[in-house]
Amino acid sequence: MHVPDGYLSPATAIVSYAAAAPALAYGLKKVKEDFQEENLALLSTVTALSFMAMMLNIPIPGGTSGHAIGTAVIAILFNPYFAAVAIGLVLIIQALLFGDGGVTALGLNIFAMGITASFVGYYAYHLTKKFLNEKIALFFSGWLSIVCASVVIAVVLGIQPLIASDPSGKPLYFPFDLKVTIPAIVFSHMVYFGVAEGIYTLLVISFVNKYYFKNENSA
């Protein structure tokens, strides 16, 4: 889901930076208010876990692959602002040091995997845990968070041939339209990577609750 350089028209890149940057700046302000020394170990751990989860490419039928992103875990354990900032940091490191995801596409990648997934994961969990079993709520929040992120990416990529082609009609940037991107990106996340994200969310949060916060009640 890391959109590379060259896939987005300049206008799209600018608009996505304009959408992601203020949101991230506001997130940083919120983190500044709430972040305490005792959160450092857990926040660093789950952020690093997201980085590593994104390295674990899962092959799927059709010759492509994908991965979990781990955003919902951070949103649920902390809040969506922490998650947006943490995933923003992960995506910046990936783009600048490892060439994974384009620098011009950073705005879109942060908007989708950082901001969208954070808020969807957080609210999905807090709304569904009222009437769903905790484990199902965790799985569902993870699933929905990455599926929504994939919708953002699919729509933005899919409109590129409509908004940027040369006079002869040849696309200048990403060439496939929504009829191609929606099934390829969104369906693969609904069926495969969403399930991976759901399982990841359930397992990591269960682990943290059981082993990291275990003395919380007795303290």
Binding site: E38, L42, L77, Y211, Y212, F213, N215, E216, A219
Partner: peptide
């Protein structure tokens, strides 16, 4: 947001 108290960083 939970604030950990007696937590195990080893985990």
């Amino acid at each position: 947001m939970k604030t950990p108290r007696n937590v195990s960083k080893k985990r």
